[in-house]
Computed example of a mutant assay.
Amino acid sequence: MVAMHKMSLDFYEDSFALIALHCNIEDHKLVYTINKFLKCGFKRRKDNLVFSDTISLPIFEWKDTITDRYWTIISNTGQSEESNENTGLFNDMPSIKKQHLIPEYKNVDYFLKLEQEDLDLESAILKSILAIPEIITAYTINTDTLKSKNNLIF
């Protein structure tokens, strides 16, 4: 009799914390502001995250070698142009379609993903982020109940 072994794709669970950021500034200005206030070293990754056929999102990352943390900032919203099939007044204008990295949180502008062994420092980081004047609000998201958690694997 032959034994069969199955491997599940959910075998390896990465532990990370996720902080939702609400702000009205562009991604490069947000990263500059966080670098300035939190003394971080975020830099833009050379390759974007390809989310769908027409949307790619820029990723900013920082490997903190002192505390052994890997941080990433990514936008939640991407836009794509679709050809308009309508005839009428706006037939030459392409329609803009918004897609969200995490559809459960459509109102969130950016996500800060913290990959580290010790997730207890999450509240101290959140408190520091809330002190930044350009950020309207920020809060943690429970990643265990997140339906589209696979979108954050990059």
Rank of each mutant, 00 (worst) to 15 (best):
G41D: 14
K29C: 01
I34Q: 02
I34S: 01
S52N: 15
S123Q: 12
N24A: 12
G88V: 09
D144Q: 12
T140F: 02
C40K: 09
L30C: 02
A124C: 00
S128N: 10
D120Y: 11
I96Y: 08
I129R: 00
V50K: 12
S52P: 01
K98I: 02
S123T: 08
M93L: 12
F42N: 07
S56K: 14
R69K: 14
E115R: 00
I129T: 03
P103S: 09
T145K: 14
E82L: 12
K98E: 15
Y32R: 11
D109M: 09
P103E: 14
F111G: 05
R44Q: 15
I74Q: 06
K63C: 02
L114A: 06
R44K: 15
M93W: 02
E117L: 07
I59E: 07
R69A: 04
L101D: 03
E122K: 03
Y32K: 12
V108Y: 02
I73F: 03
E61C: 04
N76I: 07
K63Q: 11
H100S: 05
I66N: 07
S83D: 14
I55H: 06
W62L: 04
T65E: 15
V108Q: 09
S83Y: 11
E115T: 07
A131H: 06
L146K: 12
E122I: 13
N24I: 04
A138E: 12
N35K: 03
P133E: 06
M93D: 14
L112Y: 01
T140C: 11
M93K: 13
A138H: 07
W62R: 04
K43V: 14
C40M: 15
L49V: 07
A138F: 03
L130C: 12
E117M: 03
G41I: 03
K147C: 06
N91V: 01
S148H: 15
L101K: 03
T54W: 00
